[in-house]
């Protein structure tokens, strides 16, 4: 199984977050040659001017990639591995279709803090082998209105 990584600094222009959930990155299964992927590490944090503001990051299942995003080719951790089957799209301007009851991880965080989550084997987020099905990585804040970064790693 190959391992890949992507973050929303790798393509497109970062979009400012606001008071409603703003998707900064999606990782979804592609339309053909579907197979499952397992997300085992997520890192997130704000990259704007430091201040003490509350942010809420979340990871939610999605069934589309949104609009206005930039397709990012995820590099493999081992350069000998093939190109990823999963599709990474970053810095969307239009929100993807999400499954509102499927919020997989919610992290309330101070703007000055960063969060890292790592899954042990067998406890990863699983992307089904279903067309354009995957996860959206979002953030919102009642005060902070600049950019954030999500960094995601998975195996497929």
């Amino acid at each position: 199984m190959a391992t890949y990584t992507v973050n929303n600094k790798m393509g497109g222009s970062q979009q400012n977050i606001g008071t409603s959930a703003k998707t900064v990155l999606t990782v979804t299964s592609q339309t053909t040659g579907n197979r499952r992927a397992r997300i085992f590490e997520i890192n997130c944090g704000a990259d704007g001017t430091p201040a003490d503001n509350p942010l809420t990051y979340d990871v939610i299942r999605c069934t589309s990639i949104g609009t206005g995003g930039t397709n990012i080719v995820p590099p493999a951790l081992d350069t000998a591995d093939a190109v990823a089957i999963m599709v990474a799209t970053g810095n969307q301007t239009g929100e993807p279709s999400v499954t509102s009851t499927a919020v997989m991880l919610t992290v309330p965080l101070n703007q000055r803090a960063t969060y890292r989550w790592v899954a042990s084997p067998g406890n990863e987020f699983v992307i089904p082998a279903t067309n354009v099905n995957g996860f959206a990585f979002r953030c919102l804040s009642p005060v902070y209105a600049s950019t954030v970064i999500f960094d995601v790693m998975w195996t497929e």
């Binding site: 969060y115 890292r116 989550w117 790592v118 042990s120």
Partner: peptide
């Protein structure tokens, strides 16, 4: 025991 994952918050504090 046998945690399924690990989370860490890194802040100035």
């Amino acid at each position: 025991r046998r945690a399924g994952g690990y989370g860490v918050i890194t802040s100035p504090d």
